[in-house]
Design a protein around this nucleic acid. Sequence first.
DNA 1: TGCTTCTTCGTTTTT
DNA 2: CGAAGAAGCA
Length: 732
Amino acid sequence: MTKINYREDQLPIIQYEKGKMAVPAVPGAGKTFIVTNLVAKLLEEKKQGKGKILILTYMNSAVNNFKVRIKKILEDKKIDDKNSYEVMTIHSLAVKIIKEKPEVVMLHEDFNIADDLQKTMILSECINNFRANGGEKAFRFFLKEQKDPLWQDRQLDAWENGFYDLVQNTIGELKYKEISPQKLDEIMRENRRGILKIILPIYTEYEKKLKSHGLLDYDDLLILAYKVLCMDEELRIKYQNRYQYVFEDECQDSNEIQGKIISLICENHNNLVRVGDINQSITGTFSSSDPKFFKEFIDNSDYCYRMDMSNRSSKDVINLANTLVKYVTQDLKSTECRDALEEMDIKTVPKNMGYKENPCPDKYQISLKWYETFDKEIEQTVKFVRNINKKYPDKSIGILVPYNNHINLVAKELIKEDLEFEELGPNSLRKRRVIDNIASIIDFILNCDNIEKFIEVLDKAYIKTENKEGKNDFFQLIREKRLTVEELLYDENSSKDIIIDIDSDLYQSFLYGLKALKNIIEYSLTRIDKLILFIGDNMSIENQERAIVDYLGFYVKYLIADNNKIDLQQVYNLLSDRKNKVFSYIIEVVSEINGYEPYPGSITVCNYHKSKGLEWDCVFLLGITEFNFPDNIYQKFQCDRWYLKEKYKNPNANIKSEIDFILNGEINKDYGKEIKESLIKEKIRLLYVGITRAKEMLILSASSKISAIDKKSQKPSIYLNILKNVIDKKGE
DNA sequence: TGCTTCTTCGTTTTT
DNA sequence: CGAAGAAGCA
């Protein structure tokens, strides 16, 4: 194997031997490349001694990526040393630590982890129980008064969603502050009021339920792992000796307790490498992560080497990203938000040195579009995508939108244009369709003498054909012959009246549907969870969709275990409720086992958050409006909820104040302001992430209205105006 | 143009 | 309900 030609910004990093090293890196600098090669080099030189090298990542997909790449380098170097390194997520490390000595934190050894799905089910149940058992009035207390009954319903709907998130965030925050339900109860005995008063009983029941199921949530995992390490010296020393080196990837997303666990494990050998990019820290507002921990590490480390060269993007794209950094750090009017980005210019890779160089398109490929309505923005974007896809069939294209529901809007437009694409998100139309189909089959079971329902279920779940007209004619034929469901299912002669081309996919899938529905109708209704699995067996679906059905069965089984009065109608109502969080999680859990990577010619639709870590030749950034990317705290903000009383408009700020008050007897900060500022900063970084996804072509856009009938106008984000100046000059 | 009154609509991200 | 835009009026 030829010797790798490291870039000058990579050289000091690959020469690392020991100590604490911080590696802040710009997007596309090759973090994974340098970490995997450094690990391999240390292994080659047997620097790990009798110990091991531990590589910690943030996501499961990253674990696989690291494993594959390290294995390959070791094979190339002809080193056979599988046991000297471990790759895992910080959460798996926590599980591993706790499993060694669960008794230290008074746990039974066969505890389990509550995944997102289980957590959602348990917490939703606790909230429902609270409301059903006398809490409803307190729950509604925070709503703004409203006379219009239609809007009362909408308020309630919105608060149900918002309240769930609020409770979840609050419980996490309380846990990290080491406030157990018992402790909260004690502190609040004197003074019960505010939102915490209604969260207390929910928190209490949630903890009780987790315990009785033998479950730990993700927050518990980290907190308890840290506790075990602190309390048990023997175990602590074992781990400190075991890992000669620790590497942490994406460490801008680390929270305080993760940092504490890691530094405890490194205390003995003191060999810690943390790699990350503060400017890509976009999880702070909904998790306890904070880039300040990485900043502190940079200041206290033995070495700090910046990887500031990137070969991902063209120099024009890099220039645009640097413009954003310069504007934010130097000219942003809200001076308290200027530290949103770190002043670190991305540099292009030097030419003719044998490095992989930046893409170099022959013309300026960045543009900015301003549309009248959001609908038009999507429509035009898709037309643009179609043209690029036709003209350059090898280019990968990414369409990034602010919110998940936008993904569906773009997807529908892409379907109209007959383009193949991939959706990254919980509401993926294709994945959601399995749940919808099961719902419509259940709807048919409930109304099995209704011929229209029968046609509907065949249409949605079974009939597969490109021939849309033929399908409609066929359904019309069934209606005209006045056939009943019973005749169709049980009287073979009845189908003779409507025979069309026997070999057509339309007719074949119709026959399959008939048979499947007959099976389902005859299946016992006593166990609804089993019925759902049986429905799954009678649908032609693939592996991933099958996994969704299995999860659905599990969910319904859980519901029945808790309330055996649940009937089929209620299950149908649940399945057809598009807002039910559980289904989003089911889809998420099933589809996130493997990482996703855009390939040449592919089209991907996802939100800005999900785009992190990915790259495309051509990127569209939609919805860069003031509301989505604000620049000062007096603008309209997402954290202000229209449906709540003025005093509780920003309930997350209320909670922070309340916790501050019960702990310190006074409120030390203007939390409303603090939340808005951190939101401004995070949105700036989100835009930075979006821009730096593009290799060659970048199209930024926004629109002045949401739809044509909408009367309210929206302004472009200030950042769009700033970037426009640069683009206008270069584009001529 | 500036003021008052009438009408409309309520956008949220996730390891 | 209340904020914010649209329409009405001097």
